[in-house]
Structures are given as structure tokens and as C-alpha cells.
Amino acid sequence: MMGGAGTAPIAAETGQGKTRIAPDVVAKIAGLAARDIPGVHSMGSGVARRIGQLRELIPGGSQAASQGVSVDVGERQAAIDLNLVTEYGQSIVDISDAVRRSVAGQVEGMTGLKVTEVNIQVDDIHVESPQDSQQSRTQ
């Protein structure tokens, strides 16, 4: 599994020339498409989320759109793995269905690549609690 790094750009079209789309592009589109779904709180495994939070502290810094996304791209196909944190009280099945549809639709629509699979791993559940804001104040 490639970590979305731009190691091997891929050919999406041939004919009078080739169009290559870097895996990073696919990962970014997939990340944004997944975040669009209500019920997706954040993305990435524990370590990636912590690094993402640190990046947010830097002025002008923001979480990478491709955080929590890894893509495997072939000539004309892409397989996408996602790590999600969902909101407590929401159906993980419903959210993953919606994420899968959104990601496959956006990636296929924007890149022309066929999305063969969107694998989703839910790493954590986010619980909204009044203590959240209290903790950040006392720390």
C-alpha cells in the first residue's frame, strides 16, 4: 500500500497523448469527498491525527486533505483505503455507505479513473461532551 506519495504517476488516458495523475491527487480528492459527509468527524489513524493537530497549531498550517487516505493506483484504476473517526450516535454503516459513494463518485468524476474499492476503517468514535471545552481550558 503506497502512502499516497507521488512515487508513480499514472496514465489515465492515451490517444494523442497521455495524462498522468499523481496518487496524491487521488488521495486529496478522496479525503475531501469523505470529509463532506456529516458524521465524519476527522480522518487518519491515531498518530496521523495527532500530527495533524500539531500542524493546525502552526499559523497558516492546516491538516492535509489526504490525511487518513492511502491510494493504490494502477493504469486506469484506483483502490482507496480510508481511516475515519465518526461521530457518536450515528450509524457507521450509513456513514461508510455515504463515504464510499461520495469518494467513488468524486474520484471517478474528476480523474476518470475507475475506483475498484473503497476500504474504510473506523479508528475511533468522537463523543461530544461539555468536558471537551473545559479540558482544553485547564490544560
Binding site: D36, P38, G39, G89, D94, A98, R101
Partner: peptide, 12 residues
């Protein structure tokens, strides 16, 4: 219980 809803990009 678990929210009955249909999430889609941008809303539900």
C-alpha cells in the same frame, strides 16, 4: 437511538 438519517456530501 442511532440516528435515522441518510448522510450525503454536504448534509443529511
Amino acid at each position: 437511538g442511532v440516528e435515522v438519517s441518510t448522510p450525503y456530501p454536504g448534509g443529511k
